[in-house]
């Protein structure tokens, strides 16, 4: 698997700093699970956090703090290394965690044209959903008020002749009006997150929008 479309530095740094809305964190963690390049870049942003901690003007702990800590760890078992969970399906661990399983556990809602979605439970400042787009089908033309991240998990889509396959991430802002089309061959499954409701160009999808929270 060759990933060509990666996370941006601001997104990685915001994730490292703990400042992303939950829905975006889910997309970042899922992409990083698939992409060693971004995992390494994230490691370097975490190291900046380490340097910030190291350089900070320390504030003394209370007098009994160390004794309290030592007393506390006496009662604490040290966890031992557990075998990391190796998801067998197409969802990396952080996503499988939100879905409660792999593809078979997704509760899809039809939203027309063969397209299905499933909204994932995240904090309200941004929303995350899985999209199921049959091979060869276009996702309705839409623009954004905020930022939208789309991560491919299965199949591929093309947007303006640029191909996005498994692991690739498309970062769209409000200036981009785009029409992603699922490529022929395999149905396309994506994880998408946005910090503003999508607006669709057609009248019908726009009417349906409040109903489906897309």
């Amino acid at each position: 698997m060759t990933i060509r479309h990666h996370l941006s530095d601001p997104l990685l740094m915001a994730y490292s700093a703990g400042q992303l809305p939950e829905a975006f964190s889910l997309v970042v963690a899922t992409h990083v699970s698939l992409c060693d390049e971004c995992r390494a870049r994230l490691g370097s942003f975490d190291a900046v956090g380490g340097a910030v901690i190291e350089e900070i003007d320390e504030i003394s702990m209370g007098e009994e703090a160390l004794q309290a800590a030592l007393a506390r760890i006496d009662g604490l078992p040290q966890a031992t290394r557990a075998e990391p969970l190796k998801p067998a399906g197409i969802f990396p661990a952080p996503l499988a965690d939100y879905v409660g399983g792999d593809l078979a556990s997704v509760r899809w809602q039809r939203i027309g044209g063969g397209v299905k979605q499933a909204i994932l439970p995240t904090g309200r400042d941004a929303s995350a959903r899985l999209l199921y787009i049959p091979a060869g089908t276009a996702v309705p033309d839409h623009g954004h008020r905020g930022m939208e991240l789309t991560l491919v998990l299965q199949g591929a889509f093309a947007d303006d002749d640029v191909r996005f396959g498994r692991g690739d991430i498309e970062i769209a802002d409000e200036n981009l009006e785009h029409t992603p089309v699922a490529l022929a061959g395999e149905d396309c499954i994506c994880l998408a997150a946005t910090d503003a409701p999508l607006r669709f160009r057609g009248i019908l999808p726009r009417l349906a929008q409040p109903l489906f929270r897309i």
Partner: peptide
């Protein structure tokens, strides 16, 4: 530092650090 203290929102964070990463 403000970014890492959680003092900037994600849209305010510019990742140009000038640090050798």
């Amino acid at each position: 530092e403000r970014a890492y203290y959680g003092d900037l929102s994600h849209s305010e964070i510019a990742a140009e650090t000038g640090l050798p990463l």
